[in-house]
């Protein structure tokens, strides 16, 4: 197997997880930056639509590193798609595949199910809720919580912050409630 074939495979958790964890010391040693991504959404507001809102009236240019970091993530995604992508469909738990086929989701070639997330779907109730409303909850919730998976779960827990543990448990609780109790009704729409 050539190197490129080897690297194209999905990386196991014990490779990817530690690499993600190493982002924490890398950013700290590079210049005292703490890993956190949802802040970039706030900087975008402060840069483009601050109006007269106190929360957005600060010098976002001081946080420009964060915007460059997320721009890098976009480029990283593009590079992976172009040179490093896995040609095979994602392998999921058969139980999940069985449940999803009940909602008409059978295409596992993409990173998101093309049956739900596509442009025409914006005109359907299901698509609108999952694409637009879902995104709104992500942006509203992360800022309300003061961080997301990177800022609280990874950076906060790495620094032994108990409020981050509370936040992480609530992320998980919210996800469990939505995925198991509410999402089935939305997927049936």
């Amino acid at each position: 197997m050539s190197f490129i074939e080897w690297i194209r495979q999905p990386w196991p958790w014990y490779v990817a997880g530690p690499l993600i964890g190493l982002m924490v010391p890398a950013l700290l040693i590079m210049g005292n930056r703490t890993l956190g991504i949802s802040s970039s959404l706030r900087h975008a507001c402060a840069a483009c639509v601050p109006f007269d809102i106190h929360f957005f009236k600060y010098d976002w240019k001081k946080e420009i590193w964060n915007l460059l970091f997320v721009a890098g993530i976009i480029v990283g995604g593009f590079i992976t798609a172009t040179f490093l992508s896995n040609p095979d469909p994602i392998i999921v738990n058969p139980k999940l595949a069985e449940e999803m086929s009940g909602y008409g989701i059978t295409n596992y070639t993409g990173i998101i199910p093309s049956e739900i997330f596509n442009w025409p779907a914006l005109l359907t109730a299901r698509g609108l809720i999952m694409i637009v409303f879902g995104g709104f909850l992500v942006g509203f919730g992360t800022r309300y919580a003061g961080g997301c998976t990177s800022g609280h779960a990874i950076m906060g827990l790495s620094n032994l912050q108990w409020p981050s543990l509370v936040a992480t448990c609530c992320f998980m609780a919210g996800g469990f409630i939505m995925a198991n109790l509410i999402l089935p009704f939305i997927l049936k729409l």
Binding site: S38, G141, C169, C170, M178
Partner: peptide, 23 residues
């Protein structure tokens, strides 16, 4: 951290993405 955390959890399960993965 409790209210916001739960709300983000709902969004995470709906979109399948937290902010980093969105980008």
């Amino acid at each position: 951290q409790i209210y916001g955390g739960l709300i983000f959890g709902f969004g995470w399960a709906l979109t399948g993405a937290c902010p980093g993965p969105l980008f």
